[in-house]
């Protein structure tokens, strides 16, 4: 007998939650305890009175599992609203990355040239290193990081994505 693998889809979920102790652990832990995937998770306070946070989770699973994930999130007491941006229609996704490269001579020039093409900004520079700041969809960042590997990548920090629906309406 072998373990079977299933075809999965990538979905971006946003959750409006109470900003209180344990909420993040409750949600992240629910994903692990039920065997769901988390590709990325971001959380920040978004309300004027600091009572509400917004969590963006990128997850993966077969469609019925995605349905279950949403229902299980909704079951948690501090979760007020769950939106599946991937299902809801056109939306934007952005992520920020900080990318450090080291090098001199041609390598350094090439790093700078690529950064320019990808509209990455230099936010720190020494004689033999740069830190670039880049924002964009996850694909763009993946490609940029892959290119930087060729020209002296030292390390990367990524925020994980946040997303909003397009158009005038809130989710």
């Amino acid at each position: 007998m072998h373990i079977k693998q299933e075809l999965t889809e990538r979905h971006v979920l946003t959750l409006t939650v109470d900003n209180e102790a344990g909420t993040l652990a409750r949600i992240a832990g629910m994903f692990t305890s039920r065997g769901y995937n988390i590709d990325s998770l971001t959380v920040a306070d978004i309300s004027e009175d600091h009572t509400t946070s917004r969590i963006t989770i990128v997850t993966r699973g077969p469609p019925p599992v995605i349905d279950q994930i949403i229902a299980q999130c909704e079951r948690l007491i501090p979760v007020h609203k769950v939106t599946d941006l991937t299902e809801a229609g056109p939306h934007v996704e952005r992520e920020l990355a900080l990318v450090k490269v080291r090098g001199t001579g041609d390598q350094r020039v090439e790093a700078m040239r690529l950064a320019d093409i990808y509209r990455a900004r230099v936010i720190d520079a020494t004689v033999n290193s740069f830190i670039f700041e880049i924002t964009g969809g996850p694909d763009k960042i993946d490609t940029f990081v892959a290119l930087m590997r060729e020209v002296g990548l030292v390390e990367v920090g990524r925020t994980g994505i946040v997303g909003l629906m397009r158009g005038a309406e809130g989710s």
């Binding site: 019925p64 279950q68 229902a71 299980q72 079951r75």
Partner: peptide
């Protein structure tokens, strides 16, 4: 009463 019980294993 619990939406997560619906369509969990059987559609």
């Amino acid at each position: 009463i619990d939406r997560s019980s619906i369509n969990k294993t059987v559609r």
